[in-house]
Simulated scan of single mutants.
Amino acid sequence: MNHRYTAALLVLVTVFAGVPAPVAAADQTAQCSFPMTVTDATGTEVTISEDPERVVTTNPSAAQTMWEIGARDEVVGVSQYALYLDGTSEKANVSGSSGLNVEAVIGLEPDVVLVPNTTYTAEPDRVEQLRSAGVTVVVFESGDSLDAVADKVERIGRLTGNCEAGVERADEMRTSMENMERALEDVDRPVGLNAFFGYTSGEGTFISEIMTTAGLRNGAAEANITDWGQINEELVVEMNPEYIVVPSHAPIPSGPAYNSTTAVQEGNIVVVDANSLQQPAPRAIDASEAIMKAVHPDAYERYQELQNQSETTTTADSTTATVTTADEPETTAATTTQEQTTESSAPGFSPIVAVVALALTAFLGRRR
């Protein structure tokens, strides 16, 4: 996406607010002041004493978010599945042969470690080892929507001292979602199926919302599949999806059941970059755009027009924004901010799915 712009009136949200509320510039400064105290997904109260200069991300969704808010220089460690990001060759790899390398993380002397839900779910003992060693760790909860992803972008911005950039990037996401909704008004929505290694994304997953935001109906959700679950051939035949959405690193599903579907017979297989489709980070919007372009090309053109209008309007607003003069009194920011920290983490399987075959290991790792 090239629709980046600077918002004149930046906004921050509390963790429980689904819609951002305007705040004064001084309040924004307070939100990014340190020390900052948060309560993370484990119920642990975490204090970040100073604006972090050394950040470790334990999975690619957190790393991608740091890249997208322009804070890549602050990142000193990433997981092996974040190596697709430009410049990660210069960062330390904190992945070991069997998961997070605790010693490598400690050795980097990070100011804060960002731990999305999938990392913690798979390795809670290693997170506790980091905390026992005095490392500041913030664990995020799993989310189920693109709104949750946008909220996470704002929170990571706050936690790392990049408030304005986090708000700006989150607002770009929200604007894109709104413009897609407008462009898709009165458009018939065909049934789609996300398929990867015999699994699918059901109700309550951000991938489901990526699809519906792009103008598809999620056949798996309509078949009462929740979370990430296996899909059998009978259901594929019964569902008869008109489009099949496949992450770029997974094989295109085949066999009698899939070959009988409208999607395969009409060549409606939409292959989407896995790093956009399966990571709850800003580029998830790119996945919706790719699906929308393939399924609703006319609406996609209208969407692009709306995006250009939004960018023009926001740029104009930025140009006419009122700035604080040197003569105005300085406002002292609060020194401690408390929030409940959550994250729409990489698509984590439910506990029962965590015991799937080793053939899925690479796929799950990529999604962390």
Results as ranks from 00 to 15, higher is better:
D273R: 13
I285K: 01
A284P: 06
I269T: 11
L277A: 08
Q265D: 14
A299P: 06
N275L: 11
A294K: 01
D273I: 08
Y300I: 00
A287T: 05
P282L: 06
D286I: 03
A281M: 08
E266I: 08
G267L: 10
V271I: 15
R283E: 14
N275G: 14
R283P: 12
R302P: 00
R283K: 15
A284I: 04
A287C: 10
V270A: 07
E289M: 09
R283L: 06
R283G: 06
P297K: 07
V270F: 00
G267D: 09
A294S: 15
E266H: 13
I291Y: 06
D273P: 08
V272F: 02
I269C: 07
A299H: 03
P282T: 06
Q304P: 01
Y303N: 07
M292V: 00
E266V: 09
E301F: 07
A287E: 07
N268P: 15
E289F: 05
Q265A: 14
N268L: 15
H296T: 02
D286N: 13
D298I: 11
V271H: 01
R283C: 14
V295P: 10
V272E: 05
P297H: 04
I269G: 07
P282S: 11
E289I: 00
P282Q: 11
M292N: 00
N268M: 13
P280T: 15
I285Y: 04
H296W: 05
Y303S: 06
I285H: 01
K293S: 01
Q265M: 14
Y303D: 06
S276P: 09
A274N: 02
R302M: 08
V295D: 02
Q304V: 08
P297I: 04
S276N: 09
Y303Q: 06
S276T: 12
Q278V: 05
P282R: 10
Y300N: 01
Y300S: 01
E289T: 06
D286R: 05
P280M: 13
A294Q: 03
Y303I: 05
A284C: 12
Q304G: 12
K293C: 02
D273Y: 11
I291Q: 01
E301A: 12
N275S: 14
A274C: 11
I269E: 04
H296F: 03
V295N: 00
A284G: 12
V271Y: 01
V270Q: 04
I291L: 04
D298G: 14
I269Q: 09
R302C: 05
V270P: 05
I269D: 10
Q278G: 10
S276Y: 01
R283Y: 09
R302K: 12
A287Y: 10
R302V: 09
A287Q: 07
V295I: 12
P280K: 05
R302W: 01
S288W: 03
P280D: 15
D273L: 06
E266M: 12
Q278M: 14
A274S: 15
V295F: 00
I269K: 10
Q279E: 13
Y300V: 03
V270L: 13
L277H: 00
S276L: 07
I269V: 11
I285F: 06
D273T: 07
I291G: 06
Q304D: 06
E266F: 12
N268K: 15
E289A: 08
S276F: 03
P297C: 08
M292H: 03
I269A: 04
D273H: 04
E301G: 05
R302I: 07
A290I: 11
N268Y: 14
Y303E: 02
